[in-house]
Amino acid sequence: MAEKKYAYYSGCSQETSSKEYDISLRAVMKALDVELVEPEGWSCCGSTPAHTVNHVLAAALAARNLALVEKMNMPVLTTPCPSCLTAFKEANHRMENDSFKKDVNSLLDNPYNGTVDAKSSLQIIYEDIGLETIASKVKYVFTELKVAPYYGCIMNRPPALAKFDDPENPIAMDKILSALGLNVCDFAFKTECCGAGYGYTKKDMMKELTYKVLDMARDAGANCIAVACPVCQMNLDLNQKEINKDRGSDFNMPVIYFTQLMGLAFGCSPKELAIKKLIVNPDKLLKNRMLKSETDKGQDKEKLKASA
């Protein structure tokens, strides 16, 4: 039996445009001996569109899923998607108000009592599994990668709701990537909005913000970006060519889910992690990998040198 067990909500994007996030997360969780149980018949969390219409409607769409988890008697629901996470957290927060809760439950077939805590998969991996365990599972170190960790705007915001990591300078992903032995850049734009919300409707606006994130990642010395948000991933990955055309830039920066990087380090095959689904091809950067045992030796040698 798995050591840890969580209710798992992949989110709609992970069924289509961001399948690789779901696939790689499941592979990593399996490697870490964590069982993920999907509530049967889950539906969309409502995301941004719902809360721009009405907060009761938004909370109802989210709470329907939380009610499913409540029925499963599971205290924690984890989701990889920050947008879903925010929807669940908002619903939980607003439903602390009794009259709001009544309104929401009047829209639902099965009422939700507010007993399910929503946590991002990043938080579960960072807090519940921990860096030591992660480091102990590392088989390969990818020496070419210089990673800019990108959290996106709402993974840690607003702080009163997120209650995880720092809203301006989050470090959970930085530390996870470092535990994988990767070279992690100090990235000042790790929480700046990439504009993905307007990918369909306001493309110029989106492209400007995306450009800034890519530009700052390069400025920080990165050759790839690690992400934890499916919408950010799609946005940063998909639009580089077009931005290059508009601006005369030459971005060719792989945008990889942090779970894919974990999987690679744990020794999963690229296929198991659906690496091929990424648009900017990371193969060149992933060519050089070393067995972790060898890098340890290398470090020992350096240490010896230093002390001598």
């Binding site: 720092d166 809203p167 301006e168 300078n169 100090d186 000042a188």
Partner: peptide, 8 residues
């Protein structure tokens, strides 16, 4: 003041 980089 993490938005100012703290002492980073």
């Amino acid at each position: 003041l993490t938005e100012y980089g703290g002492t980073r």
